Amino acid sequence: MRQQPLVVVKCGGNADVDAEAVCGDVAGLIRSGVEIVLVHGGSAEIERLATELDVPQRTHTSPDGVSTRRTDERTLEVLTLALAGSVKPKLVRRLARHGVRAVGMTGLDGLLLRARRKRAQRAVVDGRTVLVRDNLSGILESVNDELLRDLLDRRLLPVVSPPAITDTGEALNVDADRVAAAIAVALRADTLVLLTGAPGVQADPDDDSTMLSVCEVSPDGSPASWARGGMAMKLIAAREALLGGVAQVMVADGRRSEPVRRALASRGTRVVLRPHAARAA
């Protein structure tokens, strides 16, 4: 039986998130006996590289207000280059400087993240809801938890990002927040920490003073109307983790020193299910 606490940390791709502070904090927690899996995105680097390579970027907004990246073949190539070739190596090098033996992986490696392609996706375009069918994004179906558990047992830190892989070997973009939630569920993690470029979940996204200490989410349906863009997706990921049995989910400020410790000390927003929502055993 596992003795150490296990925490899944999602390091946001927002340029404001202090990756050095995250890595230093993760290293200190590992030395104190906490097991950690680090999941990362890389939106800022994806956008920088796409601009450099002249690959247009488009965003889909679903009817309930959740924004996701439109992923065609060129964008998928840019995403893979940015995450696997830039963001991840930088994180691994930072961790190494803190004495952490990190193993960088995408969902393709060791069939870590299995997904199926979305055949159609609803999006609002010019005020009309349309079906988009040429999007190389997927729905995460399974996590190779045995592979992650083996790495943790060897005192290695998995550093994980999209893309995921299908049964036929096709690479697909999947949301990194939902990847972190799925990994937390698969490993029966004690806590999922979602670090972002804001103090936590805010009732008004433009006003830091409106941060919620606790945010209730419904067991199904759309996120609250005030949750926009990436924060809406974080709340969806938080809900999936809670329904899957993860005891605690925190959305916290990735711009501060010791951001993970602060989150574990409830400095941020704790996301909880509404009281009538039963958690899976």
Rank of each mutant, 00 (worst) to 15 (best):
K88V: 07
K88C: 06
K90F: 08
K90R: 15
L91R: 00
V92G: 00
R94D: 10
A96D: 11
R97E: 15
H98P: 00
H98E: 12
G99D: 09
G99M: 03
V100Y: 05
V100S: 06
R101A: 14
V103M: 03
V103T: 14
G104N: 03
G104R: 05
T106I: 11
L108H: 07
D109E: 12
D109L: 08
D109V: 14
D109K: 07
L111S: 12
L111E: 12
L111T: 12
R114T: 12
R114A: 14
R114N: 12
R116L: 13
K118F: 10
K118S: 09
K118R: 14
R119S: 14
A120M: 09
Q121N: 09
Q121E: 11
R122M: 12
A123T: 09
V124P: 00
D126M: 10
R128Q: 12
R128K: 13
T129Q: 03
V130D: 02
L131W: 00
V132S: 02
D134R: 05
D134T: 07
L136E: 07
S137H: 05
S137C: 09
G138T: 10
I139Q: 11
E141L: 12
E141W: 01
E141K: 04
S142G: 13
V143Y: 00
D145K: 07
D145A: 11
E146D: 13
L148M: 05
R149F: 07
D150Y: 08
L151T: 11
D153E: 13
R154A: 15
R155S: 15
L157P: 06
V159D: 01
V159I: 10
P162W: 01
P163D: 04
A164Y: 02
I165S: 05
T166Q: 06
T166A: 01
D167V: 12
E170H: 04
E170V: 15
A171Q: 06
A171C: 11
L172C: 06
L172T: 05
V174E: 03
D177L: 08
D177R: 08
D177V: 15
D177F: 01
R178Y: 06
R178E: 13
R178N: 15
A181G: 14
I183R: 00
I183S: 06
L187E: 06
L187D: 01
D190E: 14
T191L: 07
L192W: 00
V193N: 00
V193I: 09
L194M: 09
L195Q: 04
G197V: 11
G197I: 11
P199Y: 02
P199W: 00
Q202G: 08
Q202R: 10
A203D: 10
P205G: 02
D206M: 02
D206A: 07
M211L: 07
V214M: 02
C215Y: 04
V217P: 05
S218N: 11
P219K: 04
